[in-house]
């Protein structure tokens, strides 16, 4: 980033692209609301061990007498006020939501980061080298994208088994292809621009051209896809965990918390599922509002 120059009010300002981006982003109130929502959810989620009223995984701290209490009731044994009630195992729903959000965000963030790396490497190489490599890689991508994400993830998990790491692997396998296709599309256009030709004429190595010249110019659509994909990853993980093939019982994510409360919902104890559900929806909607606006700013043409 270039150092911000002192601006004289009369001259035309030479803004840095980043400044311009920030200004454009702030124009949309919905997107700003989404961003604030994301921050408001992420901070308590990652701070869960320090701020949650109770450690929901510490079985010793749970008293079965306090189970299934409605929101706002005070526990008789520990004296904690359960603002969002307790579930069937006497876990504080608020604490479980904070910890669950932490697991959900962690899985989504890790899987998106790795798929981003794999997908953009594949996409850049396919676009830069072209020929049979491009044909082969894109055929694999096409085949994978023709199958619904949920099915691919289900197959992967039934092969790999349960576990946090397995869910992350399954999500990576589902997601990398989207990145590969998007990056390839952008890189194909960029490859024929003058700056790439110039770099080639300087006989720079292909690694350097790809990493230093092509990649930075493919970043805008990548950022958009990564943001929206973060929401998709959260949703897909929640779905898998809801179906009982995702995260293990010892590390419940929001999806699993919702599944746990599902049977109690029909008897009117709505809070066990409802609050994790609201947290999940807020996270997904917040990220999507940001992503949708990013798409408008960064690449109106390459929109999905």
């Amino acid at each position: 980033m270039s150092t911000p120059t002192t601006v004289l009010p009369t001259t035309t300002v030479e803004e840095s692209p980043f400044r311009r981006f920030v200004v454009q982003f702030r124009e949309n109130k919905l997107a700003m609301a989404g961003l604030i929502l994301m921050i408001l959810l992420a901070i308590p989620a990652f701070g869960a061990p320090w701020i949650a009223p109770q450690n929901p995984y510490d079985i010793g701290a749970l008293d079965i007498l306090d189970s299934q209490m409605p929101p706002g009731s005070v526990a008789e044994v520990s004296g904690i006020t359960h603002w969002l009630g307790t579930d069937s195992q006497a876990r504080d729903v608020l604490s479980a939501v904070l910890y669950g959000m932490r697991t959900s965000l962690l899985v989504a963030f890790l899987s998106v980061t790795v798929s981003l790396l794999i997908g953009s490497t594949v996409g850049l190489c396919a676009a830069y080298f072209g020929g049979w490599l491009d044909a082969l890689l894109m055929r694999i991508v096409d085949i994978q994208l023709s199958f619904p994400a949920i099915l691919v993830a289900l197959v992967m998990l039934s092969v790999l088994g349960q576990g946090l790491d397995k869910v992350i692997i399954a999500l990576i396998i589902v997601q990398w292809a989207y990145f590969a296709r998007t990056v390839r599309g952008t890189a194909l256009v960029e490859r024929n621009r003058e700056y790439v030709l110039a770099a080639r004429c300087l006989s720079l190595g292909w690694r350097r051209i790809i990493a230093r010249h092509l990649l930075p110019n493919c970043l805008p659509p990548l950022i958009v896809i990564a943001t929206i994909d973060l929401a998709n990853a959260i949703a897909l993980e929640a779905t898998l965990s809801f179906l009982g093939v995702g995260v293990p019982v010892t590390q419940p994510s929001l999806g699993m918390l919702i599944a746990n409360g599902f049977e109690f919902m029909l008897s009117g104890q709505y809070w066990i599922s409802f609050f994790p559900g609201i947290a999940l929806a807020l996270a997904i909607v917040g990220i999507n509002l940001v992503g949708d606006h990013l798409r408008d700013i960064l690449n109106p043409r390459n929109a999905l």
Partner: peptide, 18 residues
């Protein structure tokens, strides 16, 4: 429409049941 396709299917189902 953003809500409709970004919220997970099971979540929408759950809210409709509720």
């Amino acid at each position: 429409s953003i809500l409709g396709f970004s919220l997970p299917n099971f979540w929408i189902g759950l809210m409709l049941i509720m």
